[in-house]
Write a protein that binds this DNA or RNA. Structure first.
Lengths: 202, 202
DNA sequence: TGGTTTTCATGAACACTGTTCAATTTTAAG
DNA sequence: CTTAAAATTGAACAGTGTTCATGAAAACCA
């Protein structure tokens, strides 16, 4: 390589992300290490550090593509639904399905803890905001009068779905063992929104 | 020490858990290591392995006391509430408060992943079941006719509260940043239960 | 008391991890 | 062809969890 060869730079970055993604998808987040990536690619560890500042940056880049995949999935699944309630229920189902199909990659997103004192990079934050905006937009018709309450509803639903998926995936607190996450997700979305409507009628 | 000195055995175990708990509480789960515990206690690493089979067992034991503390907290806070709805809202508030006050210790519970293929030890599973039973019992009066639906409601609420707290604590998806977790928790519990009731009326 | 046996404590050793960096090779420019 | 810049390398450093042969100490028995 010589001076200013940015082509190779981008190529190596892509390869690293590709290998890292496949490793996580197949063997889980615990088995991801710089050394293993280097061995699989066939280069030295230092080479990777020439293109990523550390492992965290690799993880965040992988997570970024996972978030993009989720967004595409949600956008595709909730294309044009007549009923707003049905659309949000469908959103929940899509989210649960995505978690199931991308177990290890989604775990990597959830497990990631940003270094204390630092904030998410702007490009990453934007992805999260976009994803959340999707939910807010879908919830808006159901609480038409009040946009503040629409946003709160979106936050509750988003967090609630996250909780159901997180417990379902880890099996940790055994809460979701008996009943499928899909059933719980539908129950959450339907009844929460029903409750919002009922509250508005009082 | 000599043969059959169970007193020292239990004493050392207690000390290890004490030191581990304080370390996590003050510096977070990432800074927990066998070597640091040993140094803090003033013994060799091998000594700890004489009393715990590995770090995972230490973590699970710490988590066990955290779960006990949460259970005590919830039991105390939701002592005798007349209204079932108010009681469940209170439960949510207590849960959120507990997460706030025991940030690092509760993170340790959430972050723990059990080794693939293995299941939670019986004594740990029992704690989780007890905790969950608390929610189920409180939800029962609100869906009196159907115990199956009561359990589902409990699962949804439990998972939902977990999601709100998890996102609030990590600040990861920035969902809970604008509004406090307490507000979201109350919204979740109130409207979900209101929805359940409305559904039953149809 | 002395000798024996069981039990416990020790820390070096092993196999890992992320990260750094001086030395080397490769490549491009002049 | 020389030179300088850039990219690659892998040894080195500071960590991690875990194991285990060795030595010390305590308890049992005579």
């Amino acid at each position: 390589m010589g001076r200013g060869q940015k082509v190779e730079y981008g190529q190596l970055r892509a390869t690293v992300i590709e290998v890292a993604t496949e490793t996580v998808r197949e063997h889980g987040s615990a088995s991801l290490s710089i050394r293993k990536i280097a061995k699989k690619i066939g280069c030295a560890v230092g080479t990777i550090y020439n293109v990523f500042s550390n492992l965290d940056e690799i993880v965040m880049t992988v997570n970024s593509t996972t978030l993009s995949a989720l967004q595409s999935r949600l956008l595709a699944d909730t294309g044009q639904k007549e009923d707003a309630l049905a659309a949000l229920i469908g959103l929940g189902q899509s989210y649960v399905a995505f978690c199931r199909e991308n177990f290890n990659l989604w775990s990597l997103v959830l497990e990631h803890k940003l270094a204390p004192g630092s904030t998410l990079p702007e490009w990453h934050q934007q992805q999260v905001d976009d994803l959340f905006l999707l939910v807010t937009r879908m919830a808006a018709p159901l609480v038409a009068d009040d946009s503040e309450r629409a946003e709160r509803a979106a936050r509750v639903l988003w967090a609630g779905l996250h909780g159901i998926c997180a417990l379902a995936m880890s099996g940790k607190l055994d809460v979701v063992h008996a009943e499928s996450a899909e059933v719980l997700a539908e129950s959450l979305v339907r009844n929460y929104l029903l409750g919002l409507r009922a509250e508005g009628m009082v």
